[in-house]
């Protein structure tokens, strides 16, 4: 079924009612686009929930540290449970856990996003570059990704981190990015290999489009969905890696992150001492943030791939009956499935 027809060089054509055209990015100005994007977000509960949570975290990262009076200051209230004065209690040395959490959120998110950005950039260059160029460059870049894939990641990070002695934030970001790009480079390479033989890429080669333009303008936009999802998981991975490193004491203890908070809590025997207010908040932050990012990723899949969309009224009526469908022999079953997929 096509949408309305606009080859109306023919006089018998009725004018197309505007409503018949799908709401696409082609219509209207930036306001309409925003409205369309908003409708898209609203269509998936997962996406809306995930985005809301992430917005909350970003707000905290932006505003929180301004509320934190003195996260590192040692107070006189030692190991206090949550109270009016200290919303999340205090550490063994009297630091305010809430203040620490605010500052940690900013640093952890910074590390997560920056490392993911760097890792994604590397994987885009190496994956798409290799996939498109083919030949020797592809062989070499594939080899490189494969080497990085088979190197056990965490031990390498540990080795590098202990060598840099924790070092600066930038070093942490670099180390994480350096060790986490390979898997998504492989995914992107495979996708690029498939896209480069598409007819529209061949057509661009036929009219003599330059290579870099074909990659950036014809291929890259069609991998945006994959890149975004790779980026989302890279953020989660980076935050978890940093937390892991910090927990092992391989991070500069003067930087406050979720991981460092856990490290200090562990060192102070907060767990056995029952000081739950010290280690639960950072742990929960890591878990909830990871879940929120995953929700966004699944939600985007749902919105972008119409086949994953759920039509609730349809499910109620037929699904139950289909589940108890009779055993059919293989060809007929497969034929039915195929037909469904074709649609």
């Amino acid at each position: 079924m096509t949408t309305a027809d606009i080859t109306s060089a023919d006089a018998t054509h009725a004018p197309v009612p505007a409503a018949a055209l799908p709401a696409g990015p082609s219509g209207g100005g930036p306001g309409a686009r925003l409205a369309a994007a908003w409708r898209t977000v609203r269509r998936s509960r997962r996406l809306s929930a995930g985005l809301a949570l992430i917005a909350l975290f970003l707000l905290t990262a932006a505003v929180g540290p301004l509320l934190a009076t003195d996260p590192q200051g040692f107070g006189t209230d030692l190991s206090q449970p949550p109270s009016g004065a200290h919303w999340l209690g205090t550490t063994q040395t009297g630091q305010d856990v809430f203040d620490q959490l605010m500052v940690s959120t900013r640093t952890s998110l910074l590390i997560g996003f920056a490392a993911a950005l760097a890792a994604t950039a590397i994987s885009v260059v190496i994956g798409i570059g290799g996939g498109f160029l083919g030949g020797w460059s592809d062989e070499a870049l594939s080899l490189l990704s494969n080497v990085f894939l088979v190197i056990p990641g965490l031990p390498l990070v540990i080795v590098i981190s202990s060598y840099t002695k924790g070092g600066s934030l930038l070093a942490t970001i670099g180390v994480i990015a350096f060790t986490s790009w390979a898997a998504s480079a492989r995914v992107l390479r495979a996708q690029t290999l498939s896209l480069r033989t598409r007819d529209y890429v061949l057509a661009a080669r036929l009219y003599g489009e330059r290579r870099w333009r074909i990659v950036l303008v014809e291929i890259l936009p069609n991998e945006a969905a994959i890149i975004v999802s790779q980026f989302i998981f890279a953020v989660i991975f980076a935050i978890l890696t940093q937390a892991g490193l910090a927990f092992l004491g391989l991070q500069n203890p003067s930087d406050l992150t979720w991981g460092n908070m856990l490290y200090f809590a562990q060192n102070a025997d907060a767990l056995s001492g029952g000081a739950w207010w010290w280690f639960v908040p950072p742990g929960l932050c890591i878990a909830v943030f990871g879940a929120a990012m995953s929700l966004v990723s699944f939600g985007l899949d749902e919105v972008l791939d119409p086949r994953l969309r759920v039509y609730r009224p349809a499910r109620r009526g037929r699904a139950g009956r289909q589940r108890t469908a009779p055993r059919r022999t293989a060809p007929q079953q497969q034929a039915a499935r195929r037909q469904e997929a074709d649609r």
Partner: peptide, 18 residues
């Protein structure tokens, strides 16, 4: 024969028939 040209030019492939 794709007219009006200005309207068609703004469209994306998925908005067009085969």
């Amino acid at each position: 024969n794709l007219t009006p040209a200005a309207d068609v030019a703004r469209k994306r492939p998925h908005e067009l028939s085969g």
